[in-house]
Computed example of a mutant assay.
Amino acid sequence: MQPVDVFAGNSPVILGVPHAGTYVPDEIFMRLNDTGKALADTDWHVDRLYRDLLPGATMVCANFHRYVIDANRDPAGASLYPGQNTTGLCPTTDFDGLPIYLEGQAPDPAEIEERRIAWHAVYHAALAAEIERVKAIHGVAILYDCHSIRSHIPFLFEGKLPDFNIGTNGGTTCAPQIEAAVLARTKAAEGYDSILNGRFKGGWTTRHYGKPEANVHAIQMELAQCTHLATEALPFDYSEERSARLRPHLGLILSDLADLAGALNSTDKKTTRGDHHG
């Protein structure tokens, strides 16, 4: 199993999909307990949900499961949400706080480093290469990081999670126009609720790559899984009916981002010229 699949397109928009993969090498899978083997914390079917929504969009998909290593965590192991319950670079518990390994079978630091090199680093090398390729074509790249999570997880948050959870790390990872456009689309989506920089403010990927001053904009979308799954428990089946209602809203978001790229690039060039002559 190769760590990552890249579907390269010519749009300024890149879709990152770090958590839809379900591959766990046998030598790791056999060390998981029954809770871990359920792979319940997968971003189920997110690649399918976004596929073909925006013509020419690039998609970078991690094929490995987050229990192997989490491609959306700081490779140095720093917490995304200090002081809050979360899972780490190589999770040893699930989103409910339950152990996922058999006793004594969790990875040690040496194994975590091996996994980082074999999986995490390969995914991010591919993602970084696509960002640079797209930026070379358009002068700007917009990374839209695709996620989903169960809508009720008391260990992580109270009550039901909003349907659309937009993360820009407090507005630092993208131009204000991008944040505003995505929020406007989610607020206008009838029958759905949304929040900006709520419980999920953007993971390591969004924070690492989002450098508006360098013409790379990043935004994370965490969807509550009730928006597109038939059930938020095994077997986590994809709902054609729910997805058919959701996909047009996602398509409008991506289309807006593609349209904004040209305007942002034009603005950036004008700013650069003004600075040069000033």
Rank of each mutant, 00 (worst) to 15 (best):
F64T: 13
D5K: 11
V60C: 12
C61M: 08
H65A: 07
V68R: 11
L32V: 03
T58P: 11
L54I: 05
I14L: 13
T92Y: 00
G88E: 09
T87S: 02
D43H: 10
V6T: 10
G77A: 01
A38Q: 11
G88L: 06
V24H: 02
R73A: 06
G21L: 04
G56P: 11
A38D: 04
T22S: 07
A76E: 14
L15E: 08
D5G: 04
T22F: 02
R73Q: 07
N72A: 12
C61T: 13
D43I: 12
H65C: 04
H19I: 09
D94C: 03
N85C: 11
P55V: 02
L32H: 04
R66G: 12
F95E: 00
K37P: 01
Y81N: 13
W44I: 12
D41L: 04
H45P: 13
C90R: 04
A40E: 08
N33S: 02
A57H: 03
N10T: 10
W44R: 12
D5P: 00
D26N: 03
Q2T: 15
N63K: 15
I28G: 02
D34A: 13
V13M: 04
A78V: 01
G36C: 04
N85G: 08
H45V: 14
A20R: 08
A62I: 11
S79G: 07
R31L: 05
M59P: 05
T42S: 08
D34Q: 11
Y81L: 07
D70W: 00
